[in-house]
């Protein structure tokens, strides 16, 4: 990556991030909460709980009346096939336009989180207020190079009573920049890699990885580097530590090529190396950019980054140029 690229990216990110915290418009549901829509939903979902459709049964329940399924929250204020208003103009539309113009024209919804303040009843009429929560730096994902955009949607009744909220995250990415020129359905459906268990002793490493920084724990007193990290320096006894950014260069000290069992999160054969860094510590990471059958002890390698998903970036090592 050239310096110019980096500068341009930084400038673009600054423009994108100017939208963070911006109100992105309000909308009102087309219809109040109603029995017909609830019925269609629970039939489609195969949910047979009578509290959603049977007034007598609902009256006997703790709710005392028919309620809407909580996860329908988003449905009550969706635009549906009406689409977007002809004259856009909302800050969200403006942000999406900027991303489109920069080539990040593909979109995929990655995840949403909802919170509910109370159950919704027939007749509740909802409106939303949307705020652009955050825009990520440029990420290299399996689907391609892109930015994650998170919006926060506050749901309230038309009388102003808050009833819930939703964080909604999408990835705007450049088509054709993913793992393969045409991302296969398989890759898109691949389950996430196992999550690292994080503690106060190791989280810095994975936080660093998200910023594409390969960090080695360093004793703040005697300077000794250690990996895997721990709370106390075995040499001098200090509990104070910081982290040194590694050069990213090393050699393959040992390696394996996994064939079985095949876990769906990975592609096989899978080369895993024990990398000895220039700084002297070793770590386990995938060996990439080389046919697994060509990996050898002593191979000179350098770090590259696997942005696996929004929550996980891992170092990998490729043959040094």
């Amino acid at each position: 990556m050239t310096t110019t690229d980096t500068d341009e990216q930084a400038a673009f990110l600054t423009k994108l991030r100017a939208f963070q915290g911006t109100e992105a418009g309000t909308e009102v549901g087309a219809d109040p909460v109603n029995q017909a829509m609830i019925r269609h939903w629970v039939e489609a979902m195969g949910d047979q709980n009578p509290v959603y459709v049977d007034p007598d049964a609902a009256a006997q329940s703790v709710h005392g009346q028919v309620i809407a399924p909580a996860v329908m929250l988003q449905a009550w204020v969706m635009r549906g096939i009406r689409g977007r208003p002809a004259q856009g103009g909302s800050p969200r539309d403006e942000l999406m336009g900027m991303l489109d113009d920069a080539g990040f024209s593909s979109v995929v919804a990655t995840n949403s989180e909802q919170e509910y303040d109370r159950m919704l009843h027939l007749g509740d009429h909802l409106r939303t207020r949307t705020v652009i929560d955050s825009v990520s730096e440029e990420k290299h994902t399996g689907l391609g190079v892109g930015h994650f955009v998170t919006t926060r949607v506050e749901y309230e009744t038309t009388e102003g009573e808050p009833v819930g909220r939703m964080l909604f995250r999408i990835l705007k990415f450049k088509p054709g920049t993913g793992r393969s020129a045409a991302p296969s359905d398989d890759a898109a459906r691949r389950p996430l890699r196992p999550r690292p268990a994080l503690t106060q002793d190791n989280a810095f490493f994975f936080d660093g990885a998200k910023q594409h920084r390969l960090l080695i724990q360093r004793c703040a007193q005697c300077g000794r580097l250690r990996h895997p990290p721990g709370p106390r320096c075995p040499r001098c006894g200090s509990y104070e530590w910081n982290a040194q950014e590694a050069s990213g260069r090393g050699t393959v000290y040992s390696f394996v090529v996994n064939h079985y069992p095949q876990v769906p999160a990975f592609e096989y054969p899978l080369a895993v190396g024990l990398i000895e860094l220039e700084e002297g510590t070793r770590l386990v990471a995938n060996v990439v950019g080389i046919d697994p059958s060509d990996v050898a002890v002593g191979l000179a390698v350098e770090v590259e980054w696997l942005d696996e998903d929004p929550d996980l970036t891992l170092p990998a090592f490729k043959p040094r140029a």
Partner: peptide, 26 residues
Amino acid sequence: TGVQGRPPLATAESAHFAWYAPFGLL
């Protein structure tokens, strides 16, 4: 089958696998 599918907990025994499981060494 190893440790695939084990939930990541904030314990030292679980965190041990943070250096292996995400890389497919399971």
